[in-house]
Design a protein around this nucleic acid. Sequence first.
DNA 1: CTAGGGTTATGA
DNA 2: TCATAACCCTAG
Length: 480
Amino acid sequence: MDIDTAISRWILEFILRQPLDDSILNDLINILPLPNNNSNLKKALLLRKIESEISNGSVTEKILEFLELIEELDHQEGIETSEVMKAAYCAVAVECTVKYLNSKEAGSDKGKYFEAVRRIWKRRINLMEKMENVGFVCEELWNWRDEIEAALWDDRCFDNVIRRSKGVFVVEAVKVFISEAKERIGSPFLDVVAESYRTDDTVKALFGGANEEGTCRNNDREVRKGKALPRQKHVAFKHTRGAVRISDSIESELEASGVQDDLLSSPVIQLAEEALKLSSLGLRAMVKDPLPDALRLAETLSSTARDNMDHQPAENNSDRVPHPVGDSSRTVQASGDNREAQHNCHHTAASKPNLVNRNRAAHTSEAYALKKLLASTRAAHTFEWDDLLDEFNEGSASGVNRVTLPSPKRTKLSPLKTYEFKKITRRKPTKWSTLEEDTLRTGVQKYGSGNWTTILDAYRDIFAVRTAGDLKDKWRNMIS
DNA sequence: CTAGGGTTATGA
DNA sequence: TCATAACCCTAG
């Protein structure tokens, strides 16, 4: 079991660095068992998701969520948030807000800007302010927040924000962060192996690769013919282990993973091979030295293992896959009835969503992840994979469906600091639409008067610019 | 988080 | 100027 996840981890580490289609990556993540104790792998996945988000040259609010998750993982390891990461976070937050001002129909998008300010700055970022040691907290962020909020009612600030935002190169900032983060995570284990394999004869011997033509190719051919496998490599591996010196990292990895004789019997190897073949075109086009070695190694390992594999039932793995990406049921459950209510509402109001959309909406939103992030005890929490596994290719955050945010576990800032950021503005009154009024009536009927937060969460889309207090006040004057 | 009182904006 | 709606503050 451990071996499965360990090997799976190596494969994922490796593959996350490859320029594969997101869909292929999704498939892989679906079939590979995921170790839940490897922070770097989670970070690598998050980085990959960020790369995917910026691949079309723009940024989305999802990136904020991903950055927060990475920061959380960093924090758990005592890693301080780098300036580069802060800058990237700030830049993305700014861009995600200001983009609504830069569009051609600026006038009609003021509402969207307002919503974005509310979503990003008033909720997400203000929440951080209430906590201690959140890495993204910095002067620059607060300066931007003040200006962006001021721009809501002050035309001069408005122009100023637009001007200043032109100087923010958001995609570049994110890219710089990604490369820095990758550096910190280090090379994938398989790359290390491949490199050592290429340059170090003893490692080659360890994997039985000294006789590459003879061993590997033969195995491969025999597998293709469906013959039983000789286990030379196995033997070589076992017998040379301890006798030869290999690079420390490899040795410790192998030992930590509990790799023994049955290393090569893992069904994961077969899955990996499938996956690698699936993506072989893309891979082979892109990989450079030493990657061919890594591929060869993977092939070799897997071919040795395949014999055993054939005797294993296919469903072996299904139990172990924690939460397939496409499976939304768990998440829907976890986030309660509210989502369902929202869906019903959606279905009547908007065009019928397709399956993908439904999954997307049900499965996650940045709010959901944020909720999990904040709901968890800072010190003890480790992210489960379903925190991280959203669909690749997912469009920009659909999640207006905010959930109630539990009180943060991080301790409060000093009163001085808190005071500094206290609200000094008043929202411009916005007339309630009939849709909002009708929805409020429905909400009160369904959840009862007084459960304002529940109602707000249930109809997030419609009450995009309202607070629970607003609902309460509105109801008060509706029934008076 | 909500209830309830207070404040501000809007429009006639 | 006034009524009303929208928004804010804060005790419990």
